[in-house]
Simulated scan of single mutants.
Amino acid sequence: MKRSLEQRLQEGTVIAGEGYLFELERRGYLQAGSFVPEVALDNPEALKQTYRDYMNAGSDVVLAFTYNAHREKMRIIGKEELLEPLNRNAIRLAREIAREHPTEEALVAGNISNTNLFDPEDEQSKERVRNIFAEMVTWCKEEGVDFINGETFYYHEEAQIALEEIRKQELPAVITLGLMGENILRDGYTVEESCRILSEEGALVVGMNCFRGPDTMQPYLEAIRENVEGYVGGLPIPYRTTNEHPTFFNLPDGGCSCHLPLETTFPTALDPLYHNRYELAAWAKEAKNVGINYIGLCCGASPAMLRAVAEAAGVEAINSTYSPDMAKHFLFGKDETLKEHNLNYRLKA
């Protein structure tokens, strides 16, 4: 029997693989800038393989790739007529892959996110945002998702609207916030205050995702954990953000020897700024130790990174069989059958 999200949280850590946006751009199936997941219609096999790779790397969740697949984004690229087919197909593909899990069918999550329309001073904008969420959540309900992930909200009130629309459909909600460089949500709430309210209003999991790497997200996750009685989630980006540059939007790359076509390294020149998988694994252990229940990575994460996070949190992934083992490496191995002249050469290589 397939356990629910709540059942899995009661029994231990849940691993949530995200990062499809950057991963599919790297693989050549998504345009940086607009970042609209047309791949669900244009290249469904590529999306299925990406879902599969993250699930096999340890994710308990196949998150339907509908981030930015809302009416406003589709309007901007002139393809509003594809809105519903894109949303439904992304969910159907996620359900197909979730059933492939060899031991227990993975959870399927619907996805809604920041709209970039919300204006706390404009009631009409709030109504437009509500309508956007309402139609997407309705499609999620009709397509049979297990829960809905509402993410990357930098306004508390927009997150509240998302939660209200999810609860109208009687679906469990994971609500995570994206904290910009001001270190406070744009309508004045601290992340811990916002998460406490959202949890009390019925979100199953609250927390943070995206924008920040482990170093600049972890202190806020700990504050959320101290202020929230329910489950807490943390899904940082895998980049080396700092107190001076707490988000990946303005990370400098002092080592770049070429002229960047954009003003910043975001989003297409962040490659030299990655954490390695061992640093991400160390963060995952720290997060679990302070009581973070729903652990994953966001934009920029690769399946190998997610696998390291899952294993650090005590989860054996389907593809853990391919985790690094240098025992038989010709220079650095310890297998007794390796050639001694190679092993002696390793310090000179």
Rank of each mutant, 00 (worst) to 15 (best):
L107K: 08
V145N: 10
V145R: 14
E104K: 01
T138F: 12
A90Y: 12
P102H: 06
R128C: 09
L93V: 01
E104G: 00
N116I: 05
K126T: 11
T138L: 14
L93Q: 00
E127I: 02
R92V: 03
F133W: 10
E104Q: 05
F133V: 11
C140F: 05
S113T: 14
E135I: 07
E84G: 07
L93Y: 01
R130T: 05
R128V: 15
A98Y: 06
V145Y: 13
E123N: 05
V145A: 11
V137K: 06
D146N: 12
S125Y: 03
N131W: 15
S125V: 00
R130I: 07
K141G: 04
N87E: 03
I97C: 06
N131F: 13
R92S: 01
N131K: 15
D122C: 08
E84V: 10
E127Q: 05
E142T: 12
N114F: 12
T115I: 15
R128A: 12
A134S: 11
A106G: 05
T115W: 14
R130A: 10
E81A: 14
Q124L: 14
T103N: 13
L117W: 12
E143Y: 05
N131H: 15
I91Q: 08
A106E: 07
R92Y: 06
E105D: 01
D122N: 01
E105R: 06
R99M: 08
N87R: 01
E100T: 15
K141A: 03
P120K: 05
E127A: 02
E81F: 13
K126P: 09
P120G: 08
D146G: 01
V145K: 11
S113L: 12
A90F: 13
L86S: 04
V145T: 09
E121Q: 07
L93F: 06
K141V: 03
P120S: 07
V129T: 01
D119G: 11
R99S: 09
R128P: 10
P85S: 03
I112K: 04
V137H: 11
A134W: 00
N114R: 12
E143N: 02
K126I: 11
L86P: 04
V137L: 14
E96C: 08
F118T: 12
I91D: 07
L107Y: 07
S125H: 02
E104I: 07
R92D: 03
N116M: 09
I112M: 12
E105P: 02
N116L: 14
E142M: 08
T138P: 14
N131S: 15
P120V: 10
A94Q: 06
S113M: 12
E81Y: 14
S113Y: 15
V108I: 02
A90E: 00
N111T: 07
R92T: 02
A90T: 07
L82W: 10
I112F: 10
L107N: 05
E135P: 08
L82S: 04
G144T: 11
E121T: 01
N111R: 13
T103S: 13
I132E: 03
D146Y: 02
I132L: 07
A106Q: 06
E96K: 08
Q124D: 13
L86Q: 04
N87G: 04
E96S: 07
E142I: 14
H101Y: 05
C140D: 00
D122T: 00
T115L: 13
